[in-house]
Design a protein around this nucleic acid. Structure first.
Lengths: 374, 374
DNA sequence: TTGTACGCGTTATCAG
DNA sequence: CTGATAACGCGTACAA
């Protein structure tokens, strides 16, 4: 209610100039320790709140950081956004989110807003995003980092593709588009797929399957990791199950018809934890016991995964850290020069996987006493 | 890259004063149609972008609207946030989101940020929110609307409780706390629970159960609606199943042990669609056929519900509209005076409910041929 | 109907 | 080490 206290109020209170206050508050070393302390103290006592708008006007740059995200419906994106928010906070920045639903006009509008708010940093989380959005952002002087940008797939197909470094910054892509200042941050999805697979190999499994995800970067790369891990171990053949990912019933069918063709024991790598849950359900319906007959590994380690029955073994991606990384690439000092330390994914072993040896060789076929499975 | 064009650039271009440009752009009727058109045209051609920061500084009020939300993990909150964003857009406002995880310090920090950004409107979506957050917000001159604020439950318990009006604004609550300018926006959860129940009654069911949600407003009110609808129809007894809502396994057990005690046919109202899915799953495991033996109604109609097997009948809440309402309460003109038109929930009938009469009286007991249920 | 000039709260430049 | 002062881009009395 009472009108806000400004920098000149504190100045008046202490009998110093507003310049001094400003400098003291921003930690200018040219100000004596004594006055700095006095100013800071007074400011806190009078609960002075710096005006972000005035600052932004003067500096031609706000402490807002633009974020464009398709939706936040699933826990994964929510975690990511959390990571962004928290890391931004440590820099004194606040994320300004826009949900685009993947619509280009909304993305463009978001960009307009960012510019008019003097936003200078942008994070785009958009598996459907178009390159011209980047183009326009850069033209407007924004620095941007992209998370899980899907046209890396094109790169992969064109051979200009690296893996093994998570969170690797690749200005090369931006350069090729004529875009400087574009950082790319991503998971090592190949590594995740491979890690899940190697876990099953280590457990002594000899039959493998992979339930694929949608046709986007992460899915293709996880599949690649699955294949590579098996090839490296000299394992063949490799089953790959495909179904429209949004279509749970289709997935169930694909899994069911596959399970009916094979016998225990089996190791399955799922595209993500949700897919893994589908496998768990179908397996239960068909009388397969997990993990005795069937080991299942998910990817992502979403919170839900510890609640499944049995609790799901999953490759954990450091989702929040990924968001934080995107922020640090934009705001951190000297990161571009020093490079971003790679983030490793890690395996969380729960109850859905077990050694193949431990599985009783008994026929736990598909026609068991499923009725009592509950 | 090229430095932004300001209002004076446009003025210079047309040989008019910056005042004229400013007025024309804001649609001041004191400016001739001709010059207004000219200015607007020039502004667009030169792609002038008004500086939100300068405006906010001058007006002591930004076009940002603060939003505090616990998380956005589930589809429900995501929809809500979408509604907020879209409606805000029509007013030229942009939501500034903060995810608080229900932590008070984060909420307080968000408030600080809002103030320093000259935010004047706040929306709180917080089933765990504390009243002192409101207090502080109002003290700082913010107008706030609260969505699904949970201490309404207290009101309910204290008898000062109304239902039947969705989106009903109740300044009375604020007044009692000494808070003016606090608008409350909410669903008619009692109505939703009752509507779900009446649907089952209309289908001729005679046995009923309700799977409860957590101890928050919406859950208590839906339960209330369930009870009232049954009482109004003279139906008794009413079964209420309780389990920690985050604990799927607990829910499954509760449902399973209940289903083992009763016989078809049965009508079940679930707290929400997620709970309904649990019921569907357990029913399938136990050999109950849906909808022949068991009708299930969910509440919320989240997107997922049309994908379940069978597709779920659900009471749809106008979630986006609720978000929009919260915005309109703050930004809309004259809404406070004219009152907010009530929003009705609606029933979306899919495949999980059927008339009790249509159900074959045959014993589709719990010990059926569950194995083939897939 | 339009133009002039001031101030919003900061930071930065230039003197002292 | 500190103080006065000029911007930053816009809205709006007040004057014309």
């Amino acid at each position: 209610m009472a009108k806000p206290v400004t920098i000149r109020d504190v100045a008046a209170q202490l009998g110093v100039s507003i310049a001094t206050v400003s400098r003291a508050l921003s930690g200018d070393p040219a100000i004596s320790e004594l006055t700095t302390a006095a100013v800071r103290d007074a400011a806190r006592r009078m609960n002075y709140r710096p005006s972000a708008t005035a600052r932004a006007l003067r500096m031609k740059s706000s402490t807002l950081i633009g974020v464009i995200v398709p939706v936040m419906a699933d826990g994964y994106l929510c975690e990511l956004v959390f990571g962004i928010q928290n890391e931004a906070r440590t820099f004194g920045f606040k994320p300004l989110f826009f949900m685009s639903e993947g619509k280009e006009d909304l993305e463009a509008e978001a960009l307009e807003v960012f510019c008019s708010e003097q936003v200078k940093e942008l994070i785009v989380v958009s598996p459907t995003g178009k390159p011209q959005l980047l183009r326009k952002a850069v033209d407007n002087g924004l620095r941007v980092s992209v998370i899980n940008w899907d046209f890396e797939v094109q790169e992969a197909l064109f051979g200009d593709f690296h893996h093994g470094n998570v969170g690797k910054r690749k200005p090369s892509l931006g350069a090729r588009m004529g875009l400087q200042m574009v950082y790319r941050v991503e998971f090592d999805d190949v590594g995740a797929g491979a890690m899940a697979t190697r876990h099953l190999l280590d457990l002594g499994h000899r039959q493998f399957a992979h339930l694929r995800g949608p046709n986007v970067r992460s899915s293709l790369l996880r599949l690649l990791g699955y294949r590579r891990a098996l090839e490296a171990a000299g394992r063949w053949p490799q089953h790959v199950l495909t179904a429209e990912p949004a279509d749970e019933i289709g997935q169930e069918r694909a899994v069911a018809s596959f399970l009916k063709q094979v016998k225990p024991s089996l190791g399955v790598v799922a595209y993500d934890d949700q897919a893994a849950v589908v496998i768990l359900r179908v397996a239960d319906d068909l009388g397969w016991r997990v993990p005795q007959d069937l080991s299942v590994v998910g990817i992502n380690d979403i919170q839900f995964s510890s609640y499944t029955k049995p609790a799901l073994t999953s490759v954990a991606q450091p989702t929040r850290e990924l968001g934080a990384l995107a922020v640090r690439a934009l705001l951190g000092t000297g990161l571009a020069a020093r490079g971003i330390p790679p983030l490793g994914e890690s395996l969380v072993v729960r109850m859905s996987t077990a050694t193949a040896a431990a599985a009783p060789a008994a026929s736990a076929g598909a026609a068991g006493d499923a009725g009592g499975a509950l």
